[in-house]
Amino acid sequence: MVAREGFGYLGQALSAAEIFAALYLDALTPDDDLVVSPGHYAIVHYAAGVEIGRIDPAELVTYGVDGSRLESIGTEGTPGLTATCGSLGQGLSVAAGLALGARLNGSAKRVYAVVSDGEMEEGQTWEAALFSAHHGLGNLVVLLDRNDSQVDGPTHQVTTLEPVTDKWTAFGWDVHAVDGHDIGGLRAALGAAQRSARPSVVVAETWTLSGLDHLLPDEADGHFLKVTPEQIEAARAHLTEAERDARTVAPAPWTSRKGERA
C-alpha cells in the first residue's frame, strides 16, 4: 500500500500488525463493533482485512488513491469500521456509547476499540475512561498500541505518559500488559479481557519499525514513514522469506465464524 506513493502510515501498521491479527483471528466476530480511534491505522485494518476475507487483496493498491474506498485515514465509510475517527481522542467515547447501547438492547455483542498511546494526551480519553468504568461497561475492550510514537517524535520526549498501566488501573479498568508483537501474549490478554466484568485495556508494547528495523532508519518518523523503492523491494523480499518460515494461519472469514461464540 505504501509502495505506490513511497509513503504512508507504515509505522502504525508495523506496530499494530500483531494486535490486529490477534483481534481479527481470535476475538472479533461479525456481530461485534470495532472502533479504530486513530483513523490512520486504517492501513493495518486493510491488510488484516484481507486475511479475514473482508477486503479483496487486489483492492489494496487503491489505498489512498482518489476515489478509493480505502481512505488513508479511515471513516465510517471504510468497510468494517464503525465510526469516523482520526481526530485523536474521540473513538473511545463512541465505543463506550456503543457498549452502553448494546447493553440497553440486551445484546451480547462486544465493542473493541483500538486506541493509540498518544491519545492518552487528549483529555477526552480520560473522560471516556471514567464513564466506562462508572457504568461498568464489561463488554468494552480497548487495545492500546503503546508504540511510543507521535508526530513530533518519541512520545516520552513529548510528554510523560508513564505509568501507563497504573493510570488505567486507577481509573477502574481491568489492565493486561503484554508484548504487542507476541501473538500468544495478545491472544491470552484478549481472552482475559473478554471474561472481565469491567472495561478492559490490553496495553501492548510495540515498535513502529517492528519486523523491518534492519531496513528502515532508526530516526524514521514513525507517524508518516517515507520509504524508497529499494527499501520497498528489500522489505518485500524479507517479508516473503519470513512468511515462508512462519506458522501459517488459515484464513477465517467472518461469515464462517458467525455464531462461534456461545
Binding site: A83, S93, A96, G97, L98, S107
Partner: peptide, 16 residues
C-alpha cells in the same frame, strides 16, 4: 465531560 458525552451519544445512536 461534554466531549465524551457527545461521543457516547453517537455510539448510542449507532446502536439504535
Amino acid at each position: 465531560s461534554e466531549q465524551n458525552l457527545m461521543g457516547v451519544a453517537a455510539g448510542l445512536a449507532r446502536a439504535g
